[in-house]
Design a protein around this nucleic acid. Structure first.
Length: 431
DNA sequence: TCTGGGGTCCTAGGACCC
DNA sequence: TCTGGGGTCCTAGGACCC
């Protein structure tokens, strides 16, 4: 049996945990540059504000109803997520951190300790709320896909109190019948359209599909597994996390610029900064990357015909997590992509092809002073940990040229709340 | 005027190797 | 000249997730 624990409206709930005045009011949290709506309170949803909607499109609604629109504060959300996950890790033999606000728990052998798995789930729900002020919903079922589905039903049906256990064929059928096919985990826009055209509109209908049909219309083996999972046969195992964090297979740092850029050194400043942040994440999980990708995007909402994004990739001679090395290769890739006269709105750096590599790997790299480089990176990370992201950077990550003091690629976050839990300067003031 | 930033898995074709 | 069955790596793209 699996449980899926999902935090309700996570970013909004994090903000509310520190600002009780937001309780009961419509609240939304915005994406980078205050562009799109990425989290909504129940009150905001009730006003008809859609997920992913650009803020400017709902401006009238926001002003009319006094919706609180906040910039995203990932330092806060990451910290709150860590609190939730580390508690959950103590409550089950195995845990998979699936996203910043969701975790799968494996419940093998838990029944004897509780009257039922449902009471176990309610206890978790109560305790997460008490410790973090974050409300959750929990779905329990024999497969991950059914646990997701149970969670969704629990979220929509207030009479369930946020918990649904699917432990019999009857309950399973009941739940399957209540979920539109587009809400099934793994069914997106394209597949939903196809399925509707085939006359399949609910999860129950999808669960009755033949394997051949699933393979034909839902991306081959992926679709076959999806249908099997709905039928109650597990095809996806738990990917356990020892410490409540996730070791990634790829790491990306990408941003839309604060304004369009056409100067190489401006964009290079951004790319260098992305590369060094990606390298920090890489070192944190003690990996070294052997593949580096840089991409550049033009405005996809403008008149320029597609493709709007071009990318270049290099396989490194030796896997590394050293900032300067990665920045040097990133510069070369950017040079390959660069087209003079073109205006760019976004860039990104992606690291791939990970090898295990802590400090030993670092020192393997340069024959001259590899050890020194490794120690430098350690110190860099320690300083940034202490004084905040980007306090200390390698010289190449700073914009060059006369306008050194400005970072033209940086966007605005005008509605950000303080980093209550993570920054010494912004500690919560009582009273 | 203003439109996010991360991730995952799978498929397929071409180059090259034995 | 034609014929076979593998394998790997790279590149690109499509679909999905939060």
């Amino acid at each position: 049996m699996y449980a899926l624990v999902d935090c309700n409206n996570f970013y909004v709930s994090c903000e509310r945990a520190f600002q009780p005045r937001l309780e009961g009011r419509p609240v939304v949290v915005l994406s980078n540059n205050d562009g799109c709506i990425v989290s909504r309170s129940a009150e905001a949803k009730a006003l008809g504000i859609a997920m992913g909607e650009p803020l400017f499109k709902v401006k009238a609604l926001v002003e009319q109803h006094g919706v609180q629109a906040l910039s995203s504060n990932y330092a806060l959300y990451g910290d709150m997520s860590g609190r939730v996950m580390s508690y959950l890790a103590t409550q089950a033999p195995e845990l998979e951190v699936y996203s910043i606000d969701e975790a799968f728990l494996s419940l093998h052998g838990m029944e004897p300790y509780f009257g039922s798995l449902e009471s176990y789930a309610r206890q978790i729900q109560t305790e997460v709320k008490r410790r973090t002020h974050i409300p959750t919903c929990i779905g329990l079922a024999p497969t991950k896909t059914l646990a997701k589905l149970a969670n969704r039903v629990a979220k929509k049906d207030a009479s369930l109190g946020g918990v649904l256990l699917l432990d019999s064929p009857e309950r399973r059928q009941w739940a399957l019948g209540r979920v539109p096919v587009e809400d099934v985990w793994g069914i997106g826009r394209q597949y939903a359209t196809k399925l509707y055209n085939l006359g399949i509109t609910t999860a129950a209908g999808l669960a009755r599909c033949s394997e051949a049909m699933a393979r034909k219309h839902l991306g081959g083996v992926v679709g076959a597994r999806l249908v099997r999972e709905l039928q109650g046969y597990p095809c996806h195992r738990l990917n356990p996390s020892e410490d409540g964090t996730l070791a990634r297979q790829s790491i990306a740092c990408t941003r839309t610029f604060g304004r369009p850029l056409a100067q190489f050194e401006d964009v290079m400043g951004a790319v260098a900064s992305f590369a060094s942040r990606a390298a920090e994440k890489l070192r944190r999980q003690e990996s070294a990357a052997s593949v580096l990708t840089v991409f550049l995007s033009q405005n996809r909402f403008g008149n320029t015909p597609p493709p709007h994004t071009r990318s270049a990739q290099v396989t490194l001679p030796v896997a590394t997590s050293h900032t300067s090395e990665l920045v040097r290769f990133a510069r070369a890739l950017l040079g390959r992509l660069w087209q003079p006269g073109v205006v760019y709105v976004k860039a990104g750096v992606i690291l791939d092809g990970f090898e295990q590599g802590g400090q030993e790997q670092l020192s393997l790299f340069a024959t001259d002073g590899g050890e020194r480089a490794a120690r430098l990176m350690q110190k860099l990370d320690a300083l940034n940990q202490r004084y905040g992201k980007g306090s200390v950077q390698v010289a190449t990550a700073l914009g060059g040229g006369p306008s050194n003091s400005t970072t033209p690629w940086k966007g605005q976050q005008q509605r950000r709340t303080p980093a209550y839990t993570t920054s010494w300067d912004e500690l919560w003031q009582v009273g």
